[in-house]
Design a protein around this nucleic acid. Structure first.
Length: 183
DNA sequence: TGCACGATGAAC
DNA sequence: TTCATCGTGCAC
């Protein structure tokens, strides 16, 4: 499978978010290759985006978001689930794309609809925070055969605190895909 | 040093 | 609508 190059991630965040739909997420762990197809994402545009964690500034937690593109930002939410993000744009831009749902492709034995569940199913946790997606054990790849898709735009989930930013259509998913987290 | 609050998911 | 559960950021 063709691994996505660094340049893929070093583009405008909304463009990367939309392009991520349909791509394969591959995690090589415990001798198994876990693969899921990305079907739902959310874009977080940087420190000016009040819904983004980087709006708090450069802290120990958000350090990875301020780093170079093509790395993963993993954090613990509500004390019990992990969320996985793909860092985009040039170093210092502090933007990322949250993976919200996957369609199982290979070796997936748990539900993948929702950011917390997909991390659990793909065995992604805090240890992978800052991991490079050009590595051999965790990466994104072009699917074997690409199919035409229709993309749906919606407001992001659970960001009511972000004032007017909560209304922006920065959640994208593949229309009619059965693995979307919510309608 | 303490505390309010989540980019969630499941139960009621 | 409520709750589990804990790291983070910021007030004190």
């Amino acid at each position: 499978m063709q691994k996505l190059p660094r340049e893929f991630y070093n583009r405008e965040t909304v463009v990367v978010a939309r392009d991520l739909l349909g791509k394969y997420l591959v995690h090589q762990t415990h001798g198994k290759q876990l693969i899921g197809k990305i079907v739902e994402v959310e874009a977080y545009l940087g420190p000016h985006d009040l819904a983004a964690h980087s709006a708090k500034g450069r802290t120990k937690r958000t350090e990875v978001m301020f780093g170079p593109p093509g790395h993963v930002y993993v954090y613990l939410i509500y004390g019990m689930y992990y969320c996985m993000n793909i860092v985009t744009e040039q170093e210092g831009h502090a933007s990322a794309v949250l993976l919200r749902a996957l369609e199982p492709v290979q070796n997936i034995d748990a539900r993948t609809q929702g950011p917390g569940l997909l991390c659990k199913a793909l065995h992604v946790d805090k240890r992978l925070n800052g991991h490079d997606l050009l590595s051999d054990d965790l990466y994104l790849a072009e699917p074997p055969e690409s199919t035409a898709i229709t993309i749906v735009k919606r407001p992001r989930i659970g960001v009511h605190y972000a004032k007017h930013w909560a209304k922006r259509l920065l959640r994208f998913y593949i229309k009619d895909n059965p693995y979307i987290s919510r309608k």
